[in-house]
Design a protein around this nucleic acid. Structure first.
Lengths: 107, 107
DNA sequence: CTAAATATTCTTAATTTCTGGAAATATGAA
DNA sequence: TTCATATTTCCAGAAATTAAGAATATTTAG
């Protein structure tokens, strides 16, 4: 039941990562940024967040598999993992929302 | 920025409510149950969770607007708020996943 | 090598969340 | 009213999260 590799636990972890207004803002900034990723420093100046705090949140989003870090010189770019984001929203939609309408005449 | 009625805060609150394996299981049980709602006691025996703990989680899901409670005699039925669930997944999809692919040739 | 720029880890404190037993509440029946 | 059932609220301790300053690491330039 507490298998950390189970789908339920993975989904929960990803939802936890998203369930924070600061991290949600970070994700939105990254998603709206270039496909190759947005430097941590750029996100920082964009959101006005202390570097150490930002780093924690970036780590949590990365460990959840939602962001991918790539070093480029002294900067580190963070890019969104769209496949994971897609899988997450699809899980929510299918498993938790019943794929749309649960009303009998809709199925 | 901290307006509790802002879309970002509402979304965050709903994600927080979902970001817990126990609550996610509760939601799944409710979604799979009858449209008119599932009695709290039924969820309890289904998931084997102490009544008070379950009640806390049901309250959190309800306050987030994801579940709707209806009293029926001594039992209280909980039903999923599909409109909210739909709005949440759509927000995630549109605002956080860019509506699918961010790759230039996909847009 | 040294310095500068960029980010992360360390550390500590404050806050919040989670949990579940016990008590309280609400409803319907006898 | 009194009892039984269903559920919630109260309470408290344990555990996890959040925040951010200071110190540390990594990489590039000179």
């Amino acid at each position: 039941m507490n298998d950390p590799t189970s789908p339920l636990e993975r989904i929960t972890r990803q939802l936890k990562a998203l369930a924070h207004s600061g991290r949600l803002s970070i994700l939105r900034a990254v998603v709206q940024g270039p496909v190759e990723g947005t430097p941590a420093g750029h996100i920082q100046s964009l959101l006005g967040m202390p570097a150490s705090t930002l780093s924690h949140h970036l780590a949590e989003l990365s460990e959840a598999g939602l962001l991918k870090a790539t070093r480029e010189g002294t900067t580190i770019r963070y890019a969104a993992c769209f496949d994971q984001l897609k899988a997450l929203t699809e899980y929510l939609w299918q498993d938790c929302c019943g794929g749309g309408c649960r009303d009998p005449h809709c199925l």
